[in-house]
């Protein structure tokens, strides 16, 4: 059972109270984008075996969106932060690196 702490209300919510919203920090491609860019934004996903930054909604709680840094192989949770950010904050990067020294957060932007 996956347990994440909602950064908005501080509740330790379990999986059944949450709704997953997929990969985080995707950069929206608007009407000016090419077909390739729009396809990438809509469909191409990193789907990593390892550290994943992903959107969650505290659906049965405060209703707010947040982002979790989580390992898809071990289910280790490195931390959560508000969805109103475009890149992972420093304390999350440090928490991930404490466990995965090779992890590179700049790769997270590569899905643009």
């Amino acid at each position: 059972m996956l347990i994440l702490t909602c950064p908005h209300c501080g509740i330790q919510a379990e999986e059944t109270e949450l709704h997953n919203g997929g990969e985080a920090h995707l950069k929206r491609v608007g009407p000016d984008g090419s077909d390739e860019e729009f396809e990438g934004y809509m469909f191409a996903r990193r789907n990593p075996r390892g550290v994943h930054l992903e959107r969650w909604r505290h659906a049965y709680g405060c209703g707010k969106w947040f982002i979790a840094a989580r390992c898809t192989v071990t289910l280790q949770v490195f931390g959560t932060y508000a969805a109103q950010t475009t890149t992972p904050p420093d304390h999350i990067v440090q928490a991930v690196r404490a466990a995965r020294p090779d992890w590179n957060p700049t790769e997270e932007g590569a899905s643009e």
Binding site: M1, L2, E15, T16, H19, N20, N47, P48, R49, H52, E54, T72, V73, T74, L75
Partner: peptide, 14 residues
Amino acid sequence: TDHFNNFTQRGSWH
């Protein structure tokens, strides 16, 4: 299916 990316070859109990 679990509704999140997952490579654990285990599912959630619920």
